[in-house]
Each structure stands twice: as structure tokens, then as C-alpha cells.
């Protein structure tokens, strides 16, 4: 009896998820979020967020911000299946010697989320972008 009600609750959740899934199209994530223009906005906003975060800004001391913006745009374009190739160094090369802590990593993810919010990227698109970036974390922490 109770098990049946529980199964029904799960069925309702699955139905909602399926309905929402059907509403999405076959466009690439890159197209769905608004292409090059949105990715440039995210990158600009992200750099702005970092400039106003004294903790994370320290990691960028002495780095070439224009190059950073360019490579990050390429990377965001590539992971969202846009028409770009990432031409920068590997994540472990870029972050080697920085000894990035888990909490500073997560703080930076929060800044990226702020940047995506300000660029008008929807919550669901944000999650899909984060899902593409998440596997890179292991090459970035405590190196």
C-alpha cells in the first residue's frame, strides 16, 4: 500500500522530467544559450566577478587577461558543441603550481554562476554547462 503510493510519487516525478525533456529541441547547447554573443558576455562577466573577488583575483596576478578571455571563450564554445576548437594549454598545465584549494575552486564556480546569471543563461542551461566542465576539476585542484 505504502510502497504503491511511493511508486506513484516516483512515476509523477519521472513524468514531469520526461515532459520537460520533450520540450527541448535538437539545437546544440551553444545555439540554445545564444551562441558567440552569450559566451562573450559570460566571459566578460566572469572576469568582472574575479576582479571584485580579492581571494580569487590573487590567482590571476601577472596573467594575460585578454588571452584568458579568449581561451575561456574557446573552451565554453567547444564544451557547448559550438563551432570552435580550444587552442589553449591543458587544464593541468594552466593550473599547475597554483595549489588551488577545494573551497577556492567552489568559490570560482559560484563566480561563474553569477556570470552566467548576468548573461541571462537559464538555470537548466547553466547546469548542462557545469556538467561539461565538472570533469576538469580533478586536473585543477591541489596541483
Amino acid at each position: 500500500m505504502v510502497t504503491k503510493q511511493f511508486a506513484r510519487a516516483i512515476a509523477v516525478i519521472c513524468a514531469i522530467v520526461t515532459l520537460v525533456a520533450c520540450a527541448s529541441t535538437t539545437e546544440s547547447l551553444y545555439q540554445q544559450i545564444g551562441g558567440e554573443q552569450t559566451i562573450e558576455e559570460i566571459t566578460e562577466n566572469f572576469v568582472y566577478e574575479i576582479e571584485y573577488d580579492p581571494v580569487i583575483l590573487e590567482y590571476f596576478a601577472g596573467s594575460d587577461i585578454e588571452r584568458f578571455k579568449q581561451k575561456l571563450s574557446e573552451q565554453l564554445c567547444m564544451v557547448t558543441n559550438g563551432p570552435c576548437e580550444y587552442t589553449g594549454d591543458s587544464m593541468s598545465q594552466v593550473h599547475g603550481g597554483m595549489n588551488i584549494t577545494e573551497s577556492h575552486f567552489n568559490r570560482t564556480v559560484d563566480l561563474l554562476i553569477n556570470a552566467m546569471n548576468k548573461a541571462g543563461v537559464s538555470h537548466r542551461h547553466q547546469n548542462r554547462i557545469l556538467a561539461e566542465l565538472a570533469p576538469m576539476r580533478k586536473d585543477m585542484l591541489y596541483k
Binding site: V20, A23, S24, S122, H123, R124, N127, L130
Partner: peptide
């Protein structure tokens, strides 16, 4: 947690 796994929701 599966990011974006439920039609974009976590």
C-alpha cells in the same frame, strides 16, 4: 548529484 540530468535540472 547528476548535473543537468533531469532535463537540465540537477
Amino acid at each position: 548529484v547528476h548535473l543537468g540530468a533531469a532535463a537540465g535540472y540537477n
